[in-house]
Design a protein around this nucleic acid. Structure first.
Lengths: 149, 149
DNA sequence: GTCCTTGCAAATTTTTTGCATTTGA
DNA sequence: TCAAATGCAAAAAATTTGCAAGGAC
């Protein structure tokens, strides 16, 4: 019925190996960014043979094609991957308790067009994270302060 | 003339150790994000005794106080630190050749206010990175494509 | 004096690489 | 066929942690 069922990575100039197909499929299913290790475990659970280094290498290939994007969360040095979608989240992160709040309304789409015109880049996606102190931590700070006084 | 010359980390509730003072001073001088290792080397060159693990611990303390912010560049898993300033750069990164172009005009300041009102976070700073293909890589891709045809 | 901070070394975590083998086009 | 992709094991890179000693307040 639908030829897309047999998914073709060759469109991107990538060989259609079992490992790549499995990884591509798995990435499509995620509804949040995942790390290489997560993908490895999930594929192991499904008894799909793949090594972790292959996952890293495939992810690099996908990144170069824009099939996936990479992100960090709270900049902790761990890299997360996801399929870029028009509907996406950004993070608001507390500097004190490291709570992460997602927000969806993204203010920079128009800006991207402007940037594309200015730089002649073909823009694929972006990452935006905002840092600050959450209401709870702010309250704690105030409390502490007034006790000292 | 200026009391600020003797800088006081105690304002932030941090003990005023030599290592902290030296690191704080050094961070102030940077005009771009630096990694822990960079800071370590620079302090060694100045014959200031400090260990790398102490640098990481101090940076963590500074992060929690909002004295520094952390960033990744092209999400390569290395963490960079800088003193947040109102004038700051964001990155436009090529997915193919990993060229990094800075841009200064930041479109989200108004948005931050809105976000603060909505979430009651006290917002300190943000990170924005845009990914795409640079004009040169785009040209190469086109060339390749037409050769195949 | 007490609690916080530091140094050192070892451990952990994440990612990359070399090389022999396998596989898709 | 043959360049490209994979697996394995080892290495590299970045960051964290335990613990004993030192230092600020």
């Amino acid at each position: 019925m639908n030829k897309n069922k047999t998914l073709s990575l060759t469109t991107y100039g990538l060989k259609n190996t079992n490992q790549r197909k499995a990884l591509y499929e798995l990435l499509q299913k995620q509804n949040q960014p995942v790390k290489a290790e997560d993908l490895y475990k999930e594929l192991q659970n499904k008894n799909i043979a793949i090594s972790l280094s292959t996952i890293y290498r495939i992810l690099d290939a996908f990144l170069e094609k824009g099939i996936v994007s990479k992100t960090t969360i709270d900049n902790d040095g761990v890299i997360y991957y996801e399929v870029p979608r028009s509907k996406h989240f950004h993070h608001l992160i507390c500097l004190s308790c490291h709570k992460i709040v997602n927000f969806e309304n993204c203010p920079i789409h128009d800006f991207e067009d402007e940037l594309a015109n200015k730089t002649n880049f073909a823009i694929a996606y972006h990452q935006l994270d905002v840092y600050g102190y959450c209401p709870e931590c702010l309250a704690k700070m105030k409390e502490k302060h007034s006790t000292i006084k």
